[in-house]
């Protein structure tokens, strides 16, 4: 087995060249190059994480804007509905007021007319009384020859007319 047979003759050379080559590997590659490779990887990971965070923030912002839009929309719709409702209520109130005023006018006219009718019928009744009293006086004078006073005739007519 050369590993054992040549041990005494070669161990120093083996160790020397191993330390030399591994020293190169450790100091130049391990300490010099590996951290750079790793920093590249770390930078990439950081960039990816940052991009993802940005994307997530953008998404959140978009959602927020959409929410705001929706809220504004709903608000506008509500205010529009309120204006429409107010206008409707006002219109209804105005119409009611106008109707009430007309009603009052009509009622006044009606009352006036009724009063006129009542006055006319009273006047007519009085005229009928007067005419009836005269006629009654004449009838009494012609039939009995007794002349009665107009007052007595009037009283008698009134009693007969009014039952």
């Amino acid at each position: 087995m050369p590993q054992i047979a040549q041990l005494a003759a070669t161990y120093s050379s083996q160790i020397f060249w191993l330390l030399l080559t591994f020293g190169f590997v450790f100091f130049v590659i391990g300490l010099g190059m590996v951290p750079k490779v790793q920093s590249t990887v770390d930078a990439r990971d950081a960039k990816i994480a940052e991009d993802l965070a940005t994307a997530k923030a953008s998404f959140a912002r978009a959602d927020e804007l959409e929410e705001q839009n929706r809220a504004r929309d709903a608000e506008a719709r509500a205010s529009a509905q309120a204006i429409v409702a107010a206008a409707k209520a006002k219109a209804a109130k105005d119409a009611e007021k106008k109707v009430a005023a007309e009603d009052k006018k009509i009622a006044a006219k009606l009352a006036e007319a009724e009063a006129a009718i009542a006055a006319a019928s009273a006047k007519a009744l009085a005229e009928i009384e007067a005419v009836s009293a005269e006629a009654a006086q004449d009838m009494v004078a012609r039939i009995s020859g007794v002349s009665i006073t107009p007052d007595a005739a009037k009283t008698a007519v009134k009693a007969a007319l009014n039952g």
Partner: peptide, 24 residues
């Protein structure tokens, strides 16, 4: 101490150089 450049040492150097090329 003997530090002869042996076939073993040659392959150590080759290994180091190949590794250096790979990482570089």
């Amino acid at each position: 101490y003997n530090i002869a450049f042996t076939n073993s040492a040659l392959w150590m150097v080759i290994t180091a150089v190949v590794l250096w090329i790979f990482v570089a």
